[in-house]
């Protein structure tokens, strides 16, 4: 052990430095992550609103202990249960659609960009990444105007080619493959905003694939499609896993575009988990219930992360 070889005094000063610098940082971090997490769990056991007086830390008194009633509530047939399951369903639809759509666009796009001259490559990459760095609120406002049924760009374009305009964000009836139209619109906006990120990761992944593999395949007479499937995709596997999990994680937590563009409407068709948590906690002051819904979100995110670990471990075994 290197530490044992060091002289005692030096070791002590090193220990002291480690303790003095790390302890406050760790305490601080735990104060703003673990403590709230524990508190969140505690709150789920109460009917809680900070506007009511409690006995200890705001709990008890006006904020009575309700045991597991909040958990039962979100799985019951009550309105709270219905809204929870609806927002869970919407969030699932959103996340499960965003993922393939995103991959179907970004991976081929990355391959295409990889084939062009490096000067142009930078230009393309810069442009495609542009939406990712812009404020999501601003992006949502812009797309809201684009989708506007009367003054929007989309209907303007459709009418110009003789098609009928649509009330994109407020039409509850029209569905595409069973998915409500407003949800589709929000997915398009989200993918437009988010894809630059995955694109750049894929480009980096592609650059990590040695050219010899492609050359060898080319010599063997493989066409570009075969090379893509049999060389590029397998060698990108770890990048792919990473991208899939990150995309899933961020789409579970989607909030801003839904809050700004539809506020969950029409008729709760685009109400997502985080929107539901926000409204329940800060509009309707049912923080116990909101924290309970947040626990469900936490469970989903845990599962996604564990899945990632499992997949990556298999990766390492290769």
């Amino acid at each position: 052990m290197p530490a044992l070889r060091a002289r005692g005094r030096l070791l002590r000063s090193q220990h002291r430095f480690a303790a003095v610098s790390l302890t406050p940082i760790m305490l601080y971090m735990m104060g703003f992550t673990l403590l709230p997490m524990v508190w969140a769990v505690v709150i789920t056991l109460f009917r809680y609103s900070p506007t009511r007086e409690g006995v200890f830390l705001g709990l008890g008194g006006g904020n009575p202990f309700v045991g597991l009633r909040n958990y039962l509530d979100i799985f019951s047939s009550s309105i709270n249960g219905q809204l929870f399951r609806l927002s869970l369903k919407n969030t699932f639809i959103f996340a499960l659609l965003v993922l393939p759509l995103n991959l179907a666009i970004t991976l081929p796009l990355a391959v295409l960009i990889e084939t062009v001259h490096h000067r142009l490559k930078t230009v393309f990459r810069t442009i495609y990444f542009l939406p990712t760095v812009t404020s999501l609120v601003a992006v949502s406002l812009v797309w809201g105007v684009i989708y506007n049924p009367t003054f929007g760009l989309l209907n303007l374009a459709l009418r110009a080619v003789g098609l009928k305009g649509m009330p994109w964000l407020s039409d509850p009836k029209t569905t595409v493959l069973g998915i409500p139209l407003p949800m589709i619109c929000l997915i398009v906006t989200y993918v437009w905003q988010d894809m630059g990120y995955n694109l750049v990761i894929f480009i980096a992944g592609l650059q990590g694939i040695p050219e010899v593999f492609h050359e060898a395949a080319r010599v063997d007479g493989a066409n570009s499609w075969q090379r893509f499937w049999h060389i590029t995709v397998p060698l990108l596997r770890s990048t792919l896993t990473f991208v899939i999990v990150m995309t899933m994680l961020s789409s579970w937590q989607v909030f801003v575009i839904f809050y700004v563009m539809t506020r969950g409407g029409p008729g709760n068709l685009t109400r997502t988990l985080v929107l539901h948590i926000y409204e329940t906690a800060f509009r309707h002051q049912e923080m116990g219930l909101a924290a309970t819904v947040a626990m469900a979100l936490f469970a989903i995110i845990m599962l996604t992360t564990l899945l990632q670990m499992r997949l990556l471990r298999r990766e390492w075994e290769y």
Partner: peptide, 12 residues
């Protein structure tokens, strides 16, 4: 702690 999303801890 990286696994704890902000939306879960925002209320506390």
């Amino acid at each position: 702690t990286m696994m704890i999303p902000f939306q879960v801890t925002m209320i506390p």
